[in-house]
Design a protein around this nucleic acid. Structure first.
Lengths: 208, 208
DNA sequence: TGAAAAGTTGCATTTACTGCAAATTCATCG
DNA sequence: CGATGAATTTGCAGTAAATGCAACTTTTCA
């Protein structure tokens, strides 16, 4: 059968190649900038063909944001698996705190790369928004509303903002000494903001 | 000097060409989809050279989002001109209400086009984020914080969400009968949410 | 009217990305 | 082991967006 559990040479090699391409690309991006690095150069440096790069990553941008996607899936799973009783906001808070470590290592390099390129900055926002849709769905269920309704959208947007601020706070030149506790404080403040906001509109008439 | 106030033949012609390209493109996008329409086809239909299209719009996407930029500038101006006493949130609320009419006409077509294309959807988000930065700056001043700090980011994100929800609400299949009053209600609910959230974190310690 | 400035166009080139078919590598079974 | 089949890698050709440049046309204004 084609589906050896794990550890077939093929699987391992594939994983290796994938990481090779990703880290090679990251290094080049960091060195000479995202725009200034062509896919051909990445392929050269990683010693694979250009075509192979596109076999692993649909677009150049996906090379950069590859594990962003991983995080997204991870959250989607967590939210899907939550027991119906627990509020999405709580699950979310815990998820963010538990995944703080993912903000380190390569993420820091990526942050540098992205922050140096205006276009990338905006595309990162778009990615975060995609990420946010995962949250919106869960929140919508909690509130018994449609995903596109105001409240889920508001909460989602705020969560993304919290994410962004956490990143920014952790990686900006301003706070080199950012600690785990401080990051948690940012997250908790965001969650508090959300609760406060939701409380304020709880009794709002809904004429639409 | 080269700077006739307005109405030189040159100016008028330029404006006309710009609009011609934009509306031609919009029609084609609506007809056969954004991706399926090439810049060459737009140029053909508008009876200009492909090169000219790029002389007016830096990218294909900018053809679609051109007046989004206008709105952005308009808000930036409004916020810049506000008397120092008035809170950014109030100015913002009024701006949104006053510009509701801009959500009609071509905007509706654009909304259709964008909503049919996943990539465009995400890029629109990115645009809205750019729009949001304008707001963040003003909010930051009000709060006496840095643009990248949590609170300005939260408020900004929420404002964008309100924007999006308003659009969605006005254009979605679900609410064909969307009225001006209902749109205002959405805006007001969002603003209330913001005030509530800000109130909740007012006394928050700021250990970062 | 005639030169300068602004606008338009064609042409060549780069780069991301796709389809396809050949070649290579790996897994498995006789 | 070695053949068979499947997955991977690659080369090649091609599309479409975007950019630079130089030639050409139109508008402006002294």
């Amino acid at each position: 059968m084609h589906e050896r559990v794990v550890g077939g040479l093929r699987e391992r090699k594939k994983q290796k190649t994938r990481e090779l391409i990703a880290t090679t690309a990251l290094a080049l991006f960091a060195e000479r900038g995202y725009q200034a690095t062509t896919v051909a150069e990445i392929a050269d440096a990683a010693e694979v063909s250009e075509r192979t790069v596109f076999a692993y990553f649909p677009t150049k941008e996906d090379i950069l944001f590859s594990d962003h996607v991983t995080l997204e899936l991870s959250l989607a799973e967590t939210l899907a698996e939550r027991c119906p009783g627990s509020a999405a906001l709580d699950v979310l808070r815990d998820f963010l705190v538990e995944n703080l470590s993912r903000f380190d290592g390569q993420a820091r390099v990526r942050w540098q790369i992205v922050s140096h390129d205006e276009l990338l900055r905006s595309h990162q926002r778009a990615r975060q928004a995609a990420f946010g849709n995962v949250i919106a769905a869960a929140i919508a269920v909690d509130l018994g509303e449609d995903v596109d309704d105001l409240r889920p959208q508001l909460v989602t947007a705020a969560v993304i903002a919290a994410f962004t601020a956490t990143y920014e706070h952790r990686f900006s030149a301003r706070s080199r000494t950012a600690s785990r506790e401080q990051a948690i404080a940012v997250i908790d403040e965001a969650i508090t903001f959300l609760r406060g906001g939701l409380e304020a509109i709880r009794a709002f008439p809904k004429p639409y």
